[in-house]
Amino acid sequence: MRVGRLRTGLRGWGGVGAMALVCALALLFALLLPALHRGADDLGAGPDGTARPGAQGSPARAGQECRDPEKQTLAPSGDDGPAVERIRSREGGKRRLVVGVDQNSYHWGYRDPNGGDAAPVGFDIDLVRRIAEDILGDRDAVQFKAIPTDQRVRAIQDGRVDMVVRTMTITCARLADVAFSAPYFRTGQQVLVPASSPVTGYDASLAGRRVCTASGSTAHATLERDRERGTLPPGVDFATTVPNQLDCLVRLQLGEVDAVVTDGALAAGQAAQDPTVRIKGDAFTTEFYGVAMRKDADDLVRRVNRVLVAYRGDTADGWQASYDRWLAPTLGRDASKSAPPDPQYLRTG
């Protein structure tokens, strides 16, 4: 319509004006084309399926290729900037790091109903306290906010939380909206079913089954991508979405779904709460968890990356100790499969 109106306008201006306009437009296209081209590449280039083609990723990152999203972070530094200052300038009882966490992921971030303290505990929470200690000098100076899976990005963008430490996979699509730290955990999507189920993993045996995923989760995005590609086993119905992956265990126990697809690390947490369900098959993706922050909080990202370096190096009370405490019982003593790769800092600004 707009084009139509433009044309009508052009006729009124006469041939000379139109020609001038066409020249200007051609010039503009010639200048913009390379940039647009790079942007298109960027969206389609999910090497291991972590990018979602056609997802809400904005082409604003044009000029940077999204390969290996877990490497798209800033080099560690302890220099304070506006983001860190903002947290430190809070006064009195509000002088806390506001963190979006989960309170439903067993051994990651959950509220122990029998624990005396009502604060959440778990592997993610240990990391949160370490960051709070680094920034504010007090590992208890944290205000926990429980965030549903599909609210994580919005909570950061709205400024409701300083960061989200909540088993959040670093993906290209999310990189468009938030900034991530270096990875702190390696996992992959897995299938959870009742022990007696004939399902053997993410394969043809899943055909015709009802599958539960958390809305806004990587699992849901992966199933959607595979359906578009046509690699999803036929007849898989994943219409059941819940606010939290743990709600999937409820649906599975009540027989409302036949299988759950979620991160292996979380699936292990579900299996730990119910001895009659099993994780079937190997992980069919490789993903990394990262700490998510505001896109413009460069100093905070650098600071968290510095904390992560120290955290991984700390053998007494660091990454390994937290793993042993929370995850070894369900994921095994050997942490090599879960340990993140050596960080690379490819983002420059």
């Binding site: 309170q103 439903n104 992921s105 067993y106 959950y110 509220r111 122990d112 109903p113 029998n114 624990g115 939290n244 743990l246 709600d247 265990l249 409820v250 579900q270 709460q273 119910d274």
Partner: peptide, 12 residues
Amino acid sequence: YNRQGYPVGGAY
């Protein structure tokens, strides 16, 4: 589940 200390109690 709550009594057993499992967070799935909260989900229920």
